[in-house]
Design a protein around this nucleic acid. Structure first.
Lengths: 171, 171
DNA sequence: CGACGTGAGTTGAAGCATCAAGTAACCTGG
DNA sequence: CCAGGTTACTTGATGCTTCAACTCACGTCG
């Protein structure tokens, strides 16, 4: 609407609400997962993404890309998940410098046990508040913002890979 | 659209994008503030909210409410800001159990110096990607979600207090 | 008045994220 | 065939957040 550095009133309203959402929503989702499963939103995501992979394995760097994290962060988290017995790490037979993370049976059970409660919370906090148009708006607006956050476009391709014909194990 | 625990395809797409936004957007905003001002998004918010208050002062608990944080978190952060010379804490003359945080002149200068760059980043990441309808959608959808996150409605009243006739010192 | 409950705030410990550095495997040009 | 660069990953330190006590001030009910 204007091109100056400042935000106009409409933008300011939208921004304040967005700011509140991006602080409160992750906190609320984390709280549910922590309470019901002892997991972080992030560590749950790691388990969930592995659970959808054929063979339940993924190289660390591919996993890092799909969960939008640095390799460092992922390495720490997987170390903790490994200590819990939900994931194992093995050197890849194909290339000596990649290590593949594998979801164990216990890890799979954990995901299966955790997913419904998490999905219900997502539904409760987001989708119960929106009608069909609202869902469409949300998809549209977030797509636009993602385009700015991630000019490479990796995200728009990658985590949506499963969108069609996917059993809803994840959320 | 359906009432079961799972998300349908449209919802799943919207959720995956939303999840990406709520992880990447805070990280991007934090990165800009850290790089250009050595501040966290949260500590900047604290300074900015104080800067808009008449007298540049606010009781700790009121401040905690406007920045959506626990008192504990705020206390730690204000301690750091105090060490930097941007804020001071004094016991309130009115009630012996409230302490009021005051933005110092140096703190005010910090806000003034930091605000433009931050506002520009907000504009770049969010509003440059949206047209007028997009801004309206964003305001609408976030309002709906906020209603779920904060059933008390405090947020919808409180941080929007400044919406009209507010000089855009903040962002 | 005095015991109790509550509200406001601080503090310390523990967990998680981030950043900088380090290691090890692979590739490439000389 | 080996020197240097690059990719994949790990590690350790530092800092921020959270959680559970704890302190202190204020109201109130007997």
């Amino acid at each position: 609407m204007n091109e100056g550095p400042w935000l106009d009133d409409d933008e300011q309203r939208a921004w304040r609400r967005t700011a509140a959402v991006i602080t409160l929503l992750p906190a609320a989702l984390d709280a549910q997962l922590q309470r019901d499963a002892g997991l972080t939103q992030f560590s749950y995501l790691v388990l969930a993404m592995l659970s959808e992979e054929p063979g339940r394995t993924m190289p660390m760097s591919a996993l890092a890309a799909t969960v939008n994290s640095s390799l460092s962060r992922l390495s720490h988290v997987v170390a903790r998940l490994e200590a819990q017995g939900w994931v194992t790490r093995e050197p890849s037979p194909e290339s000596g410098r990649v290590t593949v993370a594998r979801l164990t049976d216990a890890g799979m059970e954990k995901v299966v046990a955790t997913a419904p409660g998490h999905a219900a919370e997502v539904r409760r906090l987001i989708f119960d508040a929106l009608d069909g148009d609202g869902v469409a708006s949300l998809a549209c607006v977030t797509a636009a913002i993602l385009g700015r956050l991630d000019p490479s476009g990796a995200l728009r391709a990658n985590p949506l890979r499963h969108e069609t014909g996917d059993r809803p194990t994840t959320a």
